[in-house]
Write a protein that binds this DNA or RNA. Structure first.
Lengths: 337, 337
DNA sequence: ATGAAAGCGCTAACAT
DNA sequence: ATGTTAGCGCTTTCAT
C-alpha cells in the first residue's frame, strides 16, 4: 500500500494524498475526507522512513538514561514515552551504564536517527553537549549546562529543607553520603548542604562519593557510624535503604541512634520500615515537562537558535517528606510533661 | 555528507561506496580500505532512513512492556537494549500501561517502523499476535502462544519448589495471592500450584487476581488473614512486600504467624526485613536470550516461516531462594533437644 | 571487481 | 485547490 495506490484509487494526484495527511488545511475539506476515507479502506499508512528521507525529520527522539534499573528513572521514562506517543512520536531508549564513554558512543549513534535528544543525568562534558545541541534539540534532565534547556529539581532547597529539619530536631553533626562523581545533582546537593549547614550552624561531614546502589549504601553505613554523626543525608533512597539495612544489622536504631534522610521518594521509601524521610521529587511530571519542552523545539536546527534556552529551563519544586527515619536526638528529646 | 560526496572524493562510483559498507566482500580489499578511509576522514556515516527506504529494513526493533515502573522489567529492558546495541540496532521502547487496548495500538504504530518485536508479558489475544508474527519476527517474553517463539520461565517448577518448601515446613493450608487477569504467567502459576498442592497434599486457597502493585499486596494481606492460612504464595515480590507491610501493621509476625513466598527476586527482595523467600528468575539473561532470538530471525518475513517457532522457545530454569520470610509452622516447630 | 541507472515512498517547490 | 516534477540517500539489478 503506497501513496500511489491510494492516489489511483481516489482519482487524485499523489500530492493530494500526501497533503491530506501532512497538511490537511491546504485541501478542500471534501477532497481530504474522500481521500482519507479511501486510504482508510485500503488500510494505507504513510511510510515513515520514506517521509524521513523527504523531510529530514524522523518522528523519533532519543532518551538516554544512566541506568534503567535505578528506580529513579522509570517514572521519568514512562512519562516521557507516553507523552511522546500522544504526540505521534516514538522513542529510542538507551542505557549508558553510568559510563560517560558509553554515553558518548550512544549519543553518536542516536543523533543520526532522531529529531531530538532527552538526556537524563548526563555525564558527558558540557562541550560535548553544546556541540550536540548545535545540531538538534536537546533537553537535559537533572543536569544543567549554561545555554541549554533543562528540567531540574530545586536541589539546594531540598537540601536546605533536610538540614533545617534535622537541625530543628537537635542534630548538630550531619553526615552526607554522596552520589556518583560527575553527577550534577550530587554537586548541587553538596553546595546546598554547605550553605544550609552554615545557615543552621550545624557541622557537615562528607562521607565521600558513591555509585548509587543499595550495596554502596550498605558500605557507607559503617562510615556513618565511624564518623559519629547523629544524622545522615544520603544521595538517594536506594542508598539510604542500604544504609538503614546495615545500621539495623549492626544494632543501630533509626531514628533513635541515627536519623536518615534520603532523596527522590522512590516507591519503596514509604514502604520501608522505618519509613524513609526523603526529598520528594516528581519524576513523572518532570518527564512530561521535558518531553513537552523537546517537542516544542523546532526540529532540524540547533536547540539554541530560536529561544534562549536559559528561558526554557525549568526548575521543579521539591518537598521534604518527613517520615519515621528521622527523629530528635537523644539529648534534644523533649521531656514529656 | 552523502554517499555521493564520498564517491567523488574517492574517485569511485556510489555503488562502490555503498558496497564497501554493506557488502565488503564484493570489493577488492584495497578499494574497500581506501573508500572506508576516505569516508572516515570525511566523517561520513550512511543514512539509516535512506537505507531503510531502499532495503525495507530499519535496523530497529520494538520492545513493549506492560509497565516500566514494575521492577520486574528494567533488568530485561536493560539487557535487551544492550544486546541490541551490540548488534548495531536501536530499540523503540513502549509502555502499554497494562492495558490490552493500549498495547494493540502501540503494536499497530510500531509494527510499521521496526524489523521485529519483543513483547513482554503481552496481554493481547493469541490471534492478534499470530497475525503480527505473520508480518515480522516476534519474540514473546513471559507469554506463550502456540507456534510463536518465546522466552519463558519454568513457572510450574517454581510453584512446585515453593509448595514443596512450605509443605516441608509443615504448612497444610496455603493461600495464593494472584496476579493480573490475562496474565499468562499467573495462569501457569495457578496450574503449577494446583498440581503441587495435590502432589504434596496441602490445600490451596485462591485469594483472587490483583494488579501487581504494592497497594494491591497491602489489600490482599487482610484476605490472607481472613482465609486463615499459615502460608501464602504471592504473584510477585512487589505485592509480597505489600502483604508483609500490612501484616506487620496488623501485628502479624512473618514467618512465625504467616510464611510469605514471593516471585521474581527483585532487587528489594533480599533487602526487606524479613528477607523475602522468593522464586528467583533471571530477567537479564532472559532479555539477552530474547534479543538474540529476535536478531537471529530473518527480517522482512513472518517469524514462523523459517524455523518452527516451538523449537526456538526457551524455558529458563528458576530457583527458590529460601530466606527469612518462610519458617516452620508453630505446631511443626521441632522442639530443641 | 566496478559502474550505470532505476527505483524505494514520500514531500515540496513550482505550476496551473 | 490540485497536479507535475524533481529529488531525499541509499541499494541493487544489470552491464561491462
Amino acid at each position: 500500500m503506497t501513496i500511489t495506490d491510494v492516489a489511483l484509487a481516489a482519482g487524485v494526484s499523489e500530492s493530494t494524498v500526501s497533503r491530506s495527511f501532512s497538511s490537511p488545511d491546504l485541501l478542500h475539506p471534501e477532497t481530504r475526507l474522500r481521500v482519507l476515507d479511501v486510504a482508510r479502506r485500503m488500510e494505507y499508512v504513510p511510510n515513515r522512513q520514506a517521509r524521513s528521507l523527504a523531510t529530514g525529520t524522523t518522528g523519533t527522539f532519543g532518551l538516554v538514561v544512566p541506568d534503567v534499573m535505578n528506580p529513579f528513572f522509570p517514572p521519568f521514562i514512562k512519562a516521557a514515552q507516553a507523552r511522546a506517543r500522544e504526540n505521534d512520536r516514538d522513542v529510542f531508549l538507551a542505557d549508558s551504564d553510568e559510563d560517560p564513554l558509553v554515553e558518548s558512543l550512544v549519543l553518536k549513534r542516536l543523533s543520526k536517527r532522531v529529531d531530538g535528544l532527552l538526556l537524563c543525568a548526563s555525564r558527558v562534558p558540557d562541550a560535548y553537549l553544546l556541540e550536540l545541541a548545535d545540531e538538534m534539540p536537546v533537553v537535559l534532565f537533572n543536569r544543567a549546562v549554561p545555554g541549554l534547556a533543562s528540567v531540574l529539581f530545586d536541589e539546594a532547597n531540598g537540601m536546605r529543607q533536610a538540614v533545617e529539619h534535622l537541625a530543628a530536631l537537635g542534630h548538630q553533626r550531619i553526615g552526607y553520603v554522596g552520589g556518583p562523581v560527575q553527577s550534577w545533582a550530587d554537586e548541587r546537593r553538596r553546595a546546598g548542604l554547605r550553605d544550609a549547614a552554615e545557615e543552621f550552624t550545624v557541622s557537615l561531614v562528607d562521607l565521600g562519593p558513591h555509585v548509587p546502589t543499595w550495596e554502596a549504601g550498605v558500605q557507607a553505613a559503617d562510615k556513618v557510624l565511624a564518623a559519629s554523626v547523629t544524622a545522615v543525608v544520603v544521595f538517594d533512597d536506594t542508598m539510604a535503604i542500604g544504609v538503614m539495612s546495615r545500621l539495623a544489622a549492626r544494632g543501630v536504631r533509626v531514628p533513635e541512634d541515627v536519623s536518615v534522610v534520603g532523596h527522590d521518594n522512590i516507591a519503596m521509601a514509604p514502604m520501608w520500615h522505618p519509613s524513609l524521610t526523603t526529598v520528594d521529587v516528581k519524576c513523572g511530571p518532570a518527564g512530561r515537562a521535558a518531553t513537552d519542552l523537546l517537542l516544542g523545539m523546532p526540529v532540524g536546527g540547533p536547540s539554541t537558535q530560536t529561544a534562549p534556552a536559559a528561558e526554557s529551563s525549568l526548575v521543579l519544586p521539591v518537598q521534604l517528606m518527613i517520615r519515621d527515619s528521622t527523629g530528635p536526638t537523644e539529648e534534644s528529646r523533649t521531656p514529656r510533661r
